[in-house]
Amino acid sequence: MNYDNNAHLAPTTYYDRHFDRQAVKILPGEYFVTNGDKMIVTVLGSCIAVCLRDKAIGIGGMNHFLLPNDGNNETGLLTESARYGVYAMELLINHLLKMGASRTRLEAKVFGGGNVLRGLKLNNVGQRNAAFVLEYLHNENIPVIAKDLLDEFPRKVYFFPDTGNVLVKKIKTLHNTTIMDRESEYRMRVKFTPKSGDVELFD
Rank of each mutant, 00 (worst) to 15 (best):
Y186R: 04
T173Q: 12
M180S: 15
F132G: 00
P143C: 04
E140M: 10
N124C: 11
V133E: 11
T178E: 13
N176D: 15
E152K: 00
T178P: 02
S184H: 10
N165M: 12
R187Q: 11
T178R: 10
N176W: 13
V144Q: 01
G126V: 08
V144E: 00
K147H: 06
V166C: 10
N139H: 08
T173V: 09
N139V: 02
D148Y: 02
K147N: 03
F153L: 10
F159Q: 07
V157F: 03
H138P: 00
L167C: 12
Y158D: 05
T173S: 08
V133N: 02
K156T: 15
R182Q: 15
P143V: 03
T173C: 07
H175R: 11
T178K: 10
N124A: 12
V125G: 03
T178Q: 13
M180C: 08
L149G: 00
R155P: 01
K172A: 15
P161A: 14
A130D: 12
K156A: 06
V157K: 04
T173Y: 14
I142T: 04
V166R: 08
T177N: 12
E135S: 07
H175D: 14
N176E: 04
D181S: 02
E183N: 05
E135K: 15
G126L: 07
V166Y: 09
Y136Q: 05
K156D: 00
I142R: 02
P161Y: 14
F132K: 02
E183C: 01
T178G: 04
K147D: 05
K169L: 09
V168L: 08
H138A: 07
V144I: 07
I145C: 01
L174R: 03
N123L: 14
T163H: 02
N124D: 11
K147I: 02
V168F: 05
D148C: 03
R155F: 05
T163V: 11
P154Q: 11
F159C: 08
D181G: 00
E183P: 00
F160K: 01
I179F: 04
E140Q: 09
I142P: 03
V133P: 06
F160S: 13
V166F: 07
V133W: 10
F159N: 03
V125Q: 14
L134W: 01
I179W: 04
L137F: 03
N123M: 08
N124G: 15
K170V: 10
T173H: 15
V133H: 11
L134C: 14
